[in-house]
Design a binder for these strands. Structure first.
Lengths: 254, 254
DNA sequence: GACGATCTGATTGTCAGACAATCATACTAT
DNA sequence: ATAGTATGATTGTCTGACAATCAGATCGTC
Protein backbone atom coordinates (compact mmCIF):
# COMPACT_ATOMS: atom_id res chain seq x y z
CA UNK A 1 0.00 0.00 0.00
CA UNK A 2 2.72 2.42 0.88
CA UNK A 3 4.76 1.28 -2.09
CA UNK A 4 3.82 3.59 -4.88
CA UNK A 5 6.68 2.80 -7.17
CA UNK A 6 7.87 6.39 -7.04
CA UNK A 7 11.49 7.01 -6.47
CA UNK A 8 11.42 9.90 -4.06
CA UNK A 9 9.23 10.78 -1.16
CA UNK A 10 7.26 13.94 -1.42
CA UNK A 11 9.40 16.59 0.16
CA UNK A 12 7.55 18.72 2.58
CA UNK A 13 9.26 21.28 4.73
CA UNK A 14 7.44 21.50 8.01
CA UNK A 15 6.98 25.08 9.16
CA UNK A 16 8.44 26.07 12.49
CA UNK A 17 5.11 26.78 14.16
CA UNK A 18 4.07 23.23 13.39
CA UNK A 19 7.25 21.90 14.90
CA UNK A 20 6.64 23.95 18.02
CA UNK A 21 3.15 22.52 18.32
CA UNK A 22 4.38 18.99 17.74
CA UNK A 23 7.10 19.35 20.35
CA UNK A 24 4.70 20.56 23.01
CA UNK A 25 2.13 17.96 22.09
CA UNK A 26 4.72 15.22 22.37
CA UNK A 27 5.65 16.35 25.86
CA UNK A 28 2.06 16.24 26.96
CA UNK A 29 1.28 12.89 25.38
CA UNK A 30 4.42 11.44 26.92
CA UNK A 31 3.16 12.80 30.22
CA UNK A 32 6.29 14.77 30.80
CA UNK A 33 3.89 17.64 31.26
CA UNK A 34 0.89 16.51 33.27
CA UNK A 35 -2.57 17.90 32.74
CA UNK A 36 -2.91 20.94 34.95
CA UNK A 37 0.74 21.79 34.83
CA UNK A 38 1.85 25.04 33.19
CA UNK A 39 3.37 24.94 29.73
CA UNK A 40 5.50 27.96 30.43
CA UNK A 41 5.17 31.53 29.31
CA UNK A 42 5.55 32.57 25.73
CA UNK A 43 8.87 34.19 26.57
CA UNK A 44 10.19 30.93 27.99
CA UNK A 45 9.05 29.00 24.94
CA UNK A 46 10.71 31.57 22.71
CA UNK A 47 13.94 30.98 24.53
CA UNK A 48 13.66 27.20 24.53
CA UNK A 49 12.73 26.81 20.89
CA UNK A 50 14.86 29.67 19.63
CA UNK A 51 12.11 31.09 17.45
CA UNK A 52 10.17 34.28 17.42
CA UNK A 53 7.22 34.89 19.66
CA UNK A 54 4.85 35.05 16.70
CA UNK A 55 5.94 31.59 15.72
CA UNK A 56 5.45 30.28 19.21
CA UNK A 57 2.03 31.83 19.35
CA UNK A 58 0.97 30.23 16.09
CA UNK A 59 2.11 26.89 17.43
CA UNK A 60 0.14 27.42 20.59
CA UNK A 61 -2.98 28.17 18.61
CA UNK A 62 -2.70 24.84 16.86
CA UNK A 63 -2.83 23.05 20.18
CA UNK A 64 -5.34 25.30 21.80
CA UNK A 65 -8.09 24.18 19.49
CA UNK A 66 -7.63 20.49 20.14
CA UNK A 67 -8.06 21.07 23.86
CA UNK A 68 -4.62 19.79 24.78
CA UNK A 69 -3.73 23.13 26.28
CA UNK A 70 -5.96 25.60 27.90
CA UNK A 71 -5.80 29.12 29.21
CA UNK A 72 -6.14 28.83 32.93
CA UNK A 73 -7.85 31.82 34.55
CA UNK A 74 -7.57 33.86 31.45
CA UNK A 75 -3.86 34.04 31.34
CA UNK A 76 -1.43 31.22 31.89
CA UNK A 77 -1.29 28.27 29.54
CA UNK A 78 -1.61 24.87 31.14
CA UNK A 79 -1.82 21.37 29.77
CA UNK A 80 -5.25 19.84 30.08
CA UNK A 81 -7.26 16.75 29.28
CA UNK A 82 -9.24 17.40 26.13
CA UNK A 83 -12.81 17.29 27.29
CA UNK A 84 -15.36 15.08 25.65
CA UNK A 85 -17.83 17.70 24.63
CA UNK A 86 -15.24 19.65 22.71
CA UNK A 87 -14.19 16.69 20.62
CA UNK A 88 -17.75 15.54 20.21
CA UNK A 89 -18.74 18.92 18.88
CA UNK A 90 -16.00 18.77 16.27
CA UNK A 91 -17.11 15.33 15.24
CA UNK A 92 -20.70 16.42 14.97
CA UNK A 93 -19.75 19.30 12.76
CA UNK A 94 -17.81 16.99 10.53
CA UNK A 95 -20.83 14.72 10.24
CA UNK A 96 -22.98 17.69 9.32
CA UNK A 97 -20.58 18.70 6.60
CA UNK A 98 -20.54 15.14 5.31
CA UNK A 99 -24.33 15.36 5.09
CA UNK A 100 -25.04 12.15 6.92
CA UNK A 101 -28.61 10.93 6.94
CA UNK A 102 -30.98 10.32 9.80
CA UNK A 103 -30.85 6.63 8.97
CA UNK A 104 -27.11 6.49 9.46
CA UNK A 105 -27.40 8.41 12.70
CA UNK A 106 -30.23 6.28 13.93
CA UNK A 107 -28.47 3.02 13.24
CA UNK A 108 -25.32 4.12 14.97
CA UNK A 109 -27.07 5.75 17.87
CA UNK A 110 -29.29 2.75 18.45
CA UNK A 111 -26.35 0.39 18.58
CA UNK A 112 -24.45 2.68 20.91
CA UNK A 113 -27.35 3.38 23.24
CA UNK A 114 -28.11 -0.30 23.58
CA UNK A 115 -24.52 -1.15 24.32
CA UNK A 116 -24.41 1.71 26.78
CA UNK A 117 -27.55 0.74 28.64
CA UNK A 118 -26.31 -2.82 28.98
CA UNK A 119 -23.19 -1.58 30.65
CA UNK A 120 -25.27 0.76 32.74
CA UNK A 121 -27.35 -2.17 33.95
CA UNK A 122 -24.15 -3.83 34.98
CA UNK A 123 -22.38 -0.93 36.63
CA UNK A 124 -24.94 1.61 37.74
CA UNK A 125 -24.47 2.91 41.27
CA UNK A 126 -27.15 4.07 43.64
CA UNK A 127 -26.60 7.77 43.10
CA UNK A 128 -26.76 7.62 39.32
CA UNK A 129 -29.95 5.65 39.64
CA UNK A 130 -31.28 8.37 41.91
CA UNK A 131 -30.37 10.94 39.28
CA UNK A 132 -32.14 8.91 36.65
CA UNK A 133 -35.27 8.66 38.78
CA UNK A 134 -35.19 12.39 39.36
CA UNK A 135 -34.86 12.90 35.64
CA UNK A 136 -37.90 10.74 34.91
CA UNK A 137 -39.88 12.57 37.57
CA UNK A 138 -38.98 15.92 36.02
CA UNK A 139 -39.95 14.63 32.62
CA UNK A 140 -43.36 13.62 33.89
CA UNK A 141 -43.90 17.06 35.31
CA UNK A 142 -42.80 18.74 32.12
CA UNK A 143 -44.80 16.44 29.90
CA UNK A 144 -46.80 19.26 28.39
CA UNK A 145 -43.73 21.05 27.09
CA UNK A 146 -42.02 19.30 24.15
CA UNK A 147 -38.87 21.41 24.36
CA UNK A 148 -38.39 20.63 28.02
CA UNK A 149 -39.06 16.94 27.48
CA UNK A 150 -36.55 16.82 24.64
CA UNK A 151 -33.97 18.51 26.81
CA UNK A 152 -34.61 16.06 29.63
CA UNK A 153 -34.45 13.18 27.18
CA UNK A 154 -30.97 14.23 26.10
CA UNK A 155 -30.01 14.46 29.74
CA UNK A 156 -31.51 11.04 30.41
CA UNK A 157 -29.32 9.40 27.83
CA UNK A 158 -26.26 11.21 29.12
CA UNK A 159 -27.03 9.86 32.56
CA UNK A 160 -27.28 6.36 31.18
CA UNK A 161 -23.88 6.86 29.63
CA UNK A 162 -22.54 8.10 32.91
CA UNK A 163 -24.01 5.05 34.63
CA UNK A 164 -22.22 2.75 32.21
CA UNK A 165 -18.92 3.87 33.67
CA UNK A 166 -17.40 3.31 30.27
CA UNK A 167 -15.65 6.40 29.01
CA UNK A 168 -15.09 5.01 25.54
CA UNK A 169 -18.79 4.45 25.07
CA UNK A 170 -19.44 7.85 26.54
CA UNK A 171 -17.13 9.41 24.03
CA UNK A 172 -18.29 7.33 21.08
CA UNK A 173 -21.98 8.00 21.59
CA UNK A 174 -21.74 11.72 22.09
CA UNK A 175 -21.20 13.00 18.55
CA UNK A 176 -24.13 11.16 17.05
CA UNK A 177 -26.38 11.88 20.00
CA UNK A 178 -25.57 15.57 19.72
CA UNK A 179 -26.90 15.43 16.21
CA UNK A 180 -29.85 13.18 16.62
CA UNK A 181 -31.41 14.23 19.91
CA UNK A 182 -32.51 17.62 18.65
CA UNK A 183 -34.89 15.75 16.41
CA UNK A 184 -36.74 14.58 19.51
CA UNK A 185 -38.30 17.96 20.02
CA UNK A 186 -39.56 18.08 16.47
CA UNK A 187 -41.06 14.63 16.81
CA UNK A 188 -42.71 15.36 20.12
CA UNK A 189 -44.17 18.56 18.82
CA UNK A 190 -45.94 16.70 16.04
CA UNK A 191 -46.97 13.54 17.85
CA UNK A 192 -49.01 13.84 20.98
CA UNK A 193 -48.62 10.20 21.89
CA UNK A 194 -44.85 10.57 21.81
CA UNK A 195 -44.41 11.96 25.29
CA UNK A 196 -46.15 9.22 27.27
CA UNK A 197 -44.38 6.55 25.26
CA UNK A 198 -41.05 8.22 25.92
CA UNK A 199 -41.77 8.48 29.62
CA UNK A 200 -42.85 4.88 29.83
CA UNK A 201 -39.70 3.73 28.07
CA UNK A 202 -37.52 5.83 30.33
CA UNK A 203 -39.21 4.49 33.42
CA UNK A 204 -38.87 0.91 32.27
CA UNK A 205 -35.24 1.47 31.47
CA UNK A 206 -34.53 2.96 34.87
CA UNK A 207 -36.35 0.02 36.48
CA UNK A 208 -34.32 -2.46 34.51
CA UNK A 209 -31.05 -0.69 35.19
CA UNK A 210 -31.71 -0.44 38.89
CA UNK A 211 -32.49 -4.17 38.96
CA UNK A 212 -29.30 -4.77 36.98
CA UNK A 213 -31.46 -6.54 34.45
CA UNK A 214 -29.40 -6.39 31.29
CA UNK A 215 -31.94 -8.12 29.08
CA UNK A 216 -34.85 -5.90 30.02
CA UNK A 217 -32.81 -2.73 29.73
CA UNK A 218 -31.71 -3.77 26.29
CA UNK A 219 -35.23 -4.55 25.25
CA UNK A 220 -36.67 -1.27 26.38
CA UNK A 221 -33.90 0.77 24.88
CA UNK A 222 -34.52 -0.98 21.60
CA UNK A 223 -38.22 -0.18 21.79
CA UNK A 224 -37.38 3.39 22.70
CA UNK A 225 -35.15 3.66 19.64
CA UNK A 226 -37.75 2.13 17.38
CA UNK A 227 -40.38 4.53 18.66
CA UNK A 228 -38.11 7.30 17.85
CA UNK A 229 -37.53 6.30 14.31
CA UNK A 230 -41.20 5.66 13.76
CA UNK A 231 -41.88 9.07 15.23
CA UNK A 232 -39.46 10.63 12.80
CA UNK A 233 -41.18 8.97 9.88
CA UNK A 234 -44.67 9.78 11.16
CA UNK A 235 -43.60 13.39 11.56
CA UNK A 236 -43.26 13.35 7.82
CA UNK A 237 -39.48 13.35 7.59
CA UNK A 238 -37.43 11.30 5.19
CA UNK A 239 -34.88 9.17 6.98
CA UNK A 240 -32.60 9.15 3.94
CA UNK A 241 -32.37 12.91 3.72
CA UNK A 242 -29.25 14.56 5.10
CA UNK A 243 -29.85 15.81 8.62
CA UNK A 244 -31.13 19.29 8.14
CA UNK A 245 -29.13 22.15 9.44
CA UNK A 246 -32.31 23.59 10.89
CA UNK A 247 -32.10 21.14 13.77
CA UNK A 248 -28.54 21.93 14.50
CA UNK A 249 -28.57 25.34 16.04
CA UNK A 250 -27.15 24.04 19.29
CA UNK A 251 -24.30 22.39 17.47
CA UNK A 252 -23.35 25.32 15.32
CA UNK A 253 -23.28 27.90 18.06
CA UNK A 254 -20.47 27.05 20.39
CA UNK B 1 -28.78 23.29 35.38
CA UNK B 2 -27.88 26.56 33.79
CA UNK B 3 -29.43 28.43 36.68
CA UNK B 4 -26.63 28.97 39.15
CA UNK B 5 -28.27 31.65 41.21
CA UNK B 6 -25.47 34.04 40.33
CA UNK B 7 -26.40 37.48 39.27
CA UNK B 8 -23.97 38.11 36.47
CA UNK B 9 -22.61 35.99 33.73
CA UNK B 10 -18.93 35.37 33.69
CA UNK B 11 -17.45 38.09 31.56
CA UNK B 12 -15.01 36.83 29.04
CA UNK B 13 -13.57 38.99 26.36
CA UNK B 14 -13.01 36.87 23.28
CA UNK B 15 -9.67 37.61 21.64
CA UNK B 16 -9.68 38.82 18.07
CA UNK B 17 -7.92 35.77 16.65
CA UNK B 18 -10.70 33.62 18.06
CA UNK B 19 -13.30 35.83 16.46
CA UNK B 20 -11.52 35.55 13.15
CA UNK B 21 -11.52 31.77 13.42
CA UNK B 22 -15.17 31.70 14.42
CA UNK B 23 -16.15 33.93 11.54
CA UNK B 24 -14.42 31.77 8.97
CA UNK B 25 -15.74 28.61 10.56
CA UNK B 26 -19.26 29.94 10.45
CA UNK B 27 -18.95 30.67 6.76
CA UNK B 28 -17.81 27.14 6.07
CA UNK B 29 -20.44 25.49 8.24
CA UNK B 30 -23.11 27.61 6.63
CA UNK B 31 -21.75 26.40 3.30
CA UNK B 32 -21.18 29.91 2.08
CA UNK B 33 -17.69 28.67 1.42
CA UNK B 34 -17.81 25.20 -0.03
CA UNK B 35 -15.16 22.59 0.62
CA UNK B 36 -12.47 23.04 -1.98
CA UNK B 37 -13.06 26.72 -2.40
CA UNK B 38 -10.33 29.17 -1.45
CA UNK B 39 -10.62 31.12 1.79
CA UNK B 40 -8.67 34.02 0.39
CA UNK B 41 -5.15 35.19 0.99
CA UNK B 42 -3.98 36.50 4.29
CA UNK B 43 -3.84 40.00 2.87
CA UNK B 44 -7.49 39.79 1.86
CA UNK B 45 -8.51 38.54 5.27
CA UNK B 46 -6.57 41.34 6.89
CA UNK B 47 -8.51 43.81 4.85
CA UNK B 48 -11.89 42.18 5.48
CA UNK B 49 -11.51 41.73 9.22
CA UNK B 50 -9.58 44.92 9.79
CA UNK B 51 -7.00 43.28 12.01
CA UNK B 52 -3.31 42.68 11.78
CA UNK B 53 -1.87 39.86 9.77
CA UNK B 54 -0.51 38.19 12.88
CA UNK B 55 -4.01 38.07 14.28
CA UNK B 56 -5.37 36.58 11.09
CA UNK B 57 -2.64 33.99 11.09
CA UNK B 58 -3.37 32.94 14.64
CA UNK B 59 -7.01 32.55 13.74
CA UNK B 60 -6.09 30.45 10.75
CA UNK B 61 -3.99 28.17 12.92
CA UNK B 62 -6.98 27.49 15.10
CA UNK B 63 -8.95 26.22 12.14
CA UNK B 64 -6.09 24.47 10.48
CA UNK B 65 -5.89 22.03 13.32
CA UNK B 66 -9.51 20.98 13.15
CA UNK B 67 -9.19 20.17 9.47
CA UNK B 68 -11.76 22.69 8.37
CA UNK B 69 -9.22 24.49 6.26
CA UNK B 70 -6.26 23.13 4.49
CA UNK B 71 -3.28 24.42 2.58
CA UNK B 72 -3.77 23.35 -0.98
CA UNK B 73 -0.56 22.60 -2.87
CA UNK B 74 1.60 24.15 -0.22
CA UNK B 75 0.27 27.61 -0.52
CA UNK B 76 -3.30 28.69 -0.85
CA UNK B 77 -5.81 28.14 1.92
CA UNK B 78 -8.96 26.29 0.96
CA UNK B 79 -11.93 25.02 2.91
CA UNK B 80 -12.09 21.28 3.26
CA UNK B 81 -14.09 18.46 4.76
CA UNK B 82 -12.40 17.36 7.96
CA UNK B 83 -11.31 13.85 7.27
CA UNK B 84 -12.24 11.00 9.54
CA UNK B 85 -8.79 9.82 10.39
CA UNK B 86 -7.73 13.20 11.64
CA UNK B 87 -10.62 13.48 14.05
CA UNK B 88 -10.28 9.87 15.07
CA UNK B 89 -6.64 10.38 15.91
CA UNK B 90 -7.50 13.29 18.17
CA UNK B 91 -10.14 11.21 19.89
CA UNK B 92 -7.76 8.35 20.39
CA UNK B 93 -5.21 10.63 21.96
CA UNK B 94 -7.83 11.96 24.31
CA UNK B 95 -8.72 8.42 25.31
CA UNK B 96 -5.09 7.66 25.95
CA UNK B 97 -4.75 10.67 28.18
CA UNK B 98 -7.87 9.67 30.05
CA UNK B 99 -6.22 6.31 30.65
CA UNK B 100 -9.11 4.20 29.50
CA UNK B 101 -8.87 0.49 30.11
CA UNK B 102 -8.84 -2.40 27.68
CA UNK B 103 -12.20 -3.45 29.10
CA UNK B 104 -13.79 -0.16 28.21
CA UNK B 105 -12.29 -0.28 24.75
CA UNK B 106 -13.31 -3.86 24.24
CA UNK B 107 -16.89 -3.31 25.26
CA UNK B 108 -17.28 -0.30 23.01
CA UNK B 109 -15.43 -1.83 20.09
CA UNK B 110 -17.42 -5.04 20.29
CA UNK B 111 -20.71 -3.21 20.23
CA UNK B 112 -19.61 -1.03 17.35
CA UNK B 113 -18.11 -3.83 15.28
CA UNK B 114 -21.25 -5.92 15.66
CA UNK B 115 -23.48 -3.04 14.67
CA UNK B 116 -21.18 -2.34 11.76
CA UNK B 117 -21.09 -5.88 10.46
CA UNK B 118 -24.87 -6.09 10.60
CA UNK B 119 -25.10 -3.06 8.38
CA UNK B 120 -22.38 -4.49 6.18
CA UNK B 121 -24.44 -7.65 5.75
CA UNK B 122 -27.30 -5.49 4.65
CA UNK B 123 -25.51 -3.12 2.32
CA UNK B 124 -22.32 -4.73 1.11
CA UNK B 125 -21.71 -4.43 -2.61
CA UNK B 126 -19.88 -6.87 -4.81
CA UNK B 127 -16.64 -4.92 -4.98
CA UNK B 128 -16.29 -4.49 -1.22
CA UNK B 129 -16.90 -8.20 -0.84
CA UNK B 130 -14.16 -8.82 -3.37
CA UNK B 131 -11.86 -6.60 -1.36
CA UNK B 132 -12.75 -8.50 1.78
CA UNK B 133 -12.02 -11.82 0.10
CA UNK B 134 -8.69 -10.52 -1.12
CA UNK B 135 -7.93 -9.39 2.41
CA UNK B 136 -8.66 -12.82 3.82
CA UNK B 137 -6.51 -14.45 1.16
CA UNK B 138 -3.62 -12.14 2.00
CA UNK B 139 -4.04 -12.91 5.66
CA UNK B 140 -3.82 -16.63 4.98
CA UNK B 141 -0.61 -16.13 3.07
CA UNK B 142 0.88 -13.96 5.78
CA UNK B 143 -0.21 -16.24 8.58
CA UNK B 144 3.32 -16.80 9.82
CA UNK B 145 3.92 -13.12 10.42
CA UNK B 146 1.99 -11.69 13.39
CA UNK B 147 2.71 -8.09 12.47
CA UNK B 148 1.40 -8.54 8.95
CA UNK B 149 -1.67 -10.40 10.19
CA UNK B 150 -2.42 -7.67 12.70
CA UNK B 151 -2.11 -5.06 9.98
CA UNK B 152 -4.43 -7.00 7.72
CA UNK B 153 -6.86 -7.48 10.58
CA UNK B 154 -7.10 -3.73 11.05
CA UNK B 155 -7.67 -3.38 7.34
CA UNK B 156 -10.31 -6.09 7.45
CA UNK B 157 -12.36 -4.24 9.99
CA UNK B 158 -12.03 -1.01 8.08
CA UNK B 159 -13.35 -2.77 5.01
CA UNK B 160 -16.32 -4.04 7.00
CA UNK B 161 -16.98 -0.47 8.04
CA UNK B 162 -16.74 0.63 4.45
CA UNK B 163 -19.16 -2.11 3.46
CA UNK B 164 -21.68 -0.88 6.02
CA UNK B 165 -22.07 2.32 4.01
CA UNK B 166 -22.79 4.08 7.26
CA UNK B 167 -20.49 7.02 7.77
CA UNK B 168 -21.57 7.62 11.33
CA UNK B 169 -20.63 4.10 12.31
CA UNK B 170 -17.42 4.48 10.36
CA UNK B 171 -16.57 7.58 12.29
CA UNK B 172 -17.70 6.28 15.66
CA UNK B 173 -15.75 3.04 15.47
CA UNK B 174 -12.48 4.50 14.32
CA UNK B 175 -11.11 6.06 17.52
CA UNK B 176 -11.51 2.97 19.64
CA UNK B 177 -10.33 0.66 16.89
CA UNK B 178 -7.22 2.79 16.43
CA UNK B 179 -6.44 2.12 20.04
CA UNK B 180 -7.43 -1.48 20.36
CA UNK B 181 -6.23 -3.09 17.17
CA UNK B 182 -2.54 -2.64 17.96
CA UNK B 183 -3.10 -5.13 20.75
CA UNK B 184 -3.82 -7.76 18.13
CA UNK B 185 -0.18 -8.05 17.23
CA UNK B 186 0.78 -8.56 20.84
CA UNK B 187 -1.82 -11.24 21.28
CA UNK B 188 -0.91 -13.06 18.09
CA UNK B 189 2.74 -13.01 19.00
CA UNK B 190 2.03 -14.83 22.23
CA UNK B 191 -0.69 -17.21 21.12
CA UNK B 192 0.04 -19.54 18.22
CA UNK B 193 -3.58 -20.63 17.92
CA UNK B 194 -4.64 -17.01 17.49
CA UNK B 195 -3.95 -16.72 13.79
CA UNK B 196 -6.03 -19.66 12.54
CA UNK B 197 -8.93 -18.64 14.74
CA UNK B 198 -8.74 -15.11 13.42
CA UNK B 199 -8.65 -16.31 9.85
CA UNK B 200 -11.58 -18.62 10.37
CA UNK B 201 -13.62 -15.85 11.93
CA UNK B 202 -12.78 -13.47 9.11
CA UNK B 203 -13.73 -16.05 6.52
CA UNK B 204 -17.01 -16.82 8.20
CA UNK B 205 -17.77 -13.13 8.47
CA UNK B 206 -17.10 -12.55 4.79
CA UNK B 207 -19.26 -15.54 3.94
CA UNK B 208 -22.10 -14.25 6.05
CA UNK B 209 -21.79 -10.72 4.71
CA UNK B 210 -21.74 -11.88 1.12
CA UNK B 211 -24.87 -13.96 1.76
CA UNK B 212 -26.41 -10.89 3.44
CA UNK B 213 -26.92 -13.08 6.48
CA UNK B 214 -27.21 -10.59 9.30
CA UNK B 215 -27.59 -13.16 12.05
CA UNK B 216 -24.55 -15.18 11.10
CA UNK B 217 -22.39 -12.14 10.60
CA UNK B 218 -23.36 -10.90 14.02
CA UNK B 219 -22.61 -14.26 15.58
CA UNK B 220 -19.17 -14.58 14.07
CA UNK B 221 -18.21 -11.04 14.86
CA UNK B 222 -19.19 -11.69 18.45
CA UNK B 223 -17.06 -14.82 18.55
CA UNK B 224 -14.22 -12.92 16.97
CA UNK B 225 -14.46 -10.26 19.66
CA UNK B 226 -14.63 -12.82 22.42
CA UNK B 227 -11.57 -14.60 21.07
CA UNK B 228 -9.81 -11.34 21.12
CA UNK B 229 -10.56 -10.59 24.71
CA UNK B 230 -9.67 -14.10 25.77
CA UNK B 231 -6.44 -13.75 23.84
CA UNK B 232 -5.66 -10.55 25.67
CA UNK B 233 -6.19 -12.23 29.01
CA UNK B 234 -4.24 -15.34 28.04
CA UNK B 235 -1.40 -13.15 26.91
CA UNK B 236 -1.14 -12.22 30.55
CA UNK B 237 -2.58 -8.72 30.32
CA UNK B 238 -4.98 -7.17 32.78
CA UNK B 239 -8.11 -5.90 31.08
CA UNK B 240 -8.65 -3.30 33.78
CA UNK B 241 -5.27 -1.69 33.35
CA UNK B 242 -5.09 1.53 31.35
CA UNK B 243 -4.10 0.83 27.78
CA UNK B 244 -0.38 1.00 27.83
CA UNK B 245 1.37 3.63 25.85
CA UNK B 246 3.73 0.97 24.61
CA UNK B 247 1.10 -0.21 22.16
CA UNK B 248 0.39 3.22 20.91
CA UNK B 249 3.37 4.18 18.85
CA UNK B 250 1.31 4.44 15.69
CA UNK B 251 -1.13 6.75 17.38
CA UNK B 252 1.45 9.05 18.88
CA UNK B 253 3.50 9.57 15.78
CA UNK B 254 1.44 11.50 13.33
C1' DG C 1 -2.81 42.35 62.86
C1' DA C 2 -6.50 42.80 59.27
C1' DC C 3 -8.04 45.07 55.49
C1' DG C 4 -8.09 47.80 51.47
C1' DA C 5 -5.51 50.88 48.18
C1' DT C 6 -1.64 51.48 45.32
C1' DC C 7 2.45 50.45 42.85
C1' DT C 8 5.41 47.37 39.97
C1' DG C 9 6.82 43.93 36.97
C1' DA C 10 5.38 40.09 34.07
C1' DT C 11 2.49 38.36 30.56
C1' DT C 12 -0.66 38.37 26.85
C1' DG C 13 -3.10 40.36 22.81
C1' DT C 14 -2.44 43.25 19.10
C1' DC C 15 -0.14 46.06 15.99
C1' DA C 16 3.34 48.03 12.28
C1' DG C 17 6.74 46.96 9.36
C1' DA C 18 10.22 44.23 7.34
C1' DC C 19 12.65 40.45 4.53
C1' DA C 20 13.80 35.89 2.49
C1' DA C 21 11.96 31.88 0.29
C1' DT C 22 8.81 30.10 -2.56
C1' DC C 23 5.07 29.95 -5.87
C1' DA C 24 2.35 31.38 -10.20
C1' DT C 25 2.73 33.33 -14.27
C1' DA C 26 4.15 35.63 -18.21
C1' DC C 27 7.84 36.31 -21.20
C1' DT C 28 11.99 35.08 -23.84
C1' DA C 29 15.36 32.40 -26.25
C1' DT C 30 16.55 28.31 -28.43
C1' DA D 1 7.55 23.00 -28.03
C1' DT D 2 10.74 23.22 -24.38
C1' DA D 3 13.76 25.26 -21.19
C1' DG D 4 15.30 29.23 -19.04
C1' DT D 5 14.35 33.90 -16.94
C1' DA D 6 12.07 37.78 -14.94
C1' DT D 7 8.27 39.56 -12.04
C1' DG D 8 4.86 40.00 -8.71
C1' DA D 9 2.16 37.70 -5.06
C1' DT D 10 2.06 35.02 -0.97
C1' DT D 11 3.67 32.78 3.01
C1' DG D 12 6.83 31.99 6.93
C1' DT D 13 9.55 34.30 10.06
C1' DC D 14 11.55 38.03 12.45
C1' DT D 15 12.15 42.71 15.08
C1' DG D 16 10.25 45.82 17.88
C1' DA D 17 6.63 48.07 20.04
C1' DC D 18 2.51 49.25 23.20
C1' DA D 19 -1.89 48.83 25.87
C1' DA D 20 -4.47 45.93 28.95
C1' DT D 21 -4.51 42.90 32.40
C1' DC D 22 -2.81 39.91 36.05
C1' DA D 23 0.09 38.45 40.23
C1' DG D 24 2.49 40.05 43.92
C1' DA D 25 4.65 43.27 46.83
C1' DT D 26 4.24 47.43 49.31
C1' DC D 27 1.96 50.73 51.90
C1' DG D 28 -1.48 53.12 54.79
C1' DT D 29 -5.28 53.08 57.72
C1' DC D 30 -8.08 51.33 61.24
Amino acid sequence: MTETGEKFDRINAIPAYQLVADAIEREILARRIRPGEPIGTEAQLVKQFGVNRSTVREGIRLLEQSGLIHRDSGRRLTASLPHYSRLATRMSRAMLLHEVTFRELWEATTALEIATVEQAAEHATADVIAELQANVASTEQASADPAAVAELDTQFHSLIAKASQNRVLQLAREPSSLLIFPTTEIILRKLKEGVPRLIQAHRKIVDAVSRHDKEASRLWMLRHANDWRRGFERAGKDVDQPIDRVYMKEVMTR
